[in-house]
Amino acid sequence: MKNINWGKYSKPIILVVFIILLSILRPKAFLSLNNFSNVLWSVSVIGIMVSGTIFVFLIGGIDLSIATLCAFSAVVVVEVTHYLGDTPKAVAIGVAAALAVGLLAGLLHGIIITTFHIPAFLVTFATQSIFLGLAMVFTNNKIVSCTVPAFTAIGSRKILGFPMPVYFMIVIAVISWFVLRKTVFGRYVYAVGGNETAAAISGINTRRSAIMCYMISGLTTALGGIVLASMTQQASSSTGAGYTNDVITAGVIGGVSLLGGEGTVTGAIFGAVLMGLLNNGLNLLSVPSTHAGLVKGLVIIVAVAFDAMQHADQSRKKVKKVKKAQA
């Protein structure tokens, strides 16, 4: 093939252009060490979540409940910690409870979606409302704060100059990369996303794979909620608001196809970094966070439309090839 695969190089190019642009526009604010760790914090939460939700994207599903599940798990960890008396042990149990909530939510999604063959967006659209209600009921519609040192350490303690969430993100991204690249289950995920019927015929238990994917997604979303609550030292029903879009956008920017079967963890993490920079950059350019939705929405539309066009192009090429071979 003669034409250069722009898709392959576009990501680093976008990243470099973005960083240069911000360095020129806001050199002092952007290039400071303090800002650097701000970006890392923002990146790590999105990165943690997208490392898990990528499994759902890869099987052609979606999770619209990310933001409210994040809120609910944040509320659970804070409330359980309070209930058990704010000790380090209570924090550990609280974290475990929140992670269990995430896993259960994923299990619920997976079972409903695969048993009754209901579109994922619809199920997660409905559960989004349930998680929101649960978060509201548990907090009595207030903001609950938690300043137990053992808890706040999760989000704000620094090791070798980097905040803890960064290490979380790296560990989870590596695990996720390993599972997708080096395990049989990972191959199954791509196969199911590429063509579910073909995967089922070739003997893959597509149902079990799909349920596992939703559970992984729930787990990382809950972890994102815990980290977010720990960073802000509080939880409420609006913790994580907007993260549904951020995580989907990160995946899409990173080349994960929402139609399933395509995408890598490295791409998704790249997307998270770009989203973190975007959030930070818009912030530094004093664009209010309420306006950022415009940019993110447009990014999603352009990226997905481009993806859909490429898909149509590829299938057209395939048809041509087959016709040529027949002739």
Binding site: L64, N245, I248, T290, G293, V295, G297, L298, I300, I301
Partner: peptide, 9 residues
């Protein structure tokens, strides 16, 4: 979902 955030913004 994307236009939802665009219109709100």
């Amino acid at each position: 979902l994307a236009t939802m955030s665009v219109y709100r913004a």
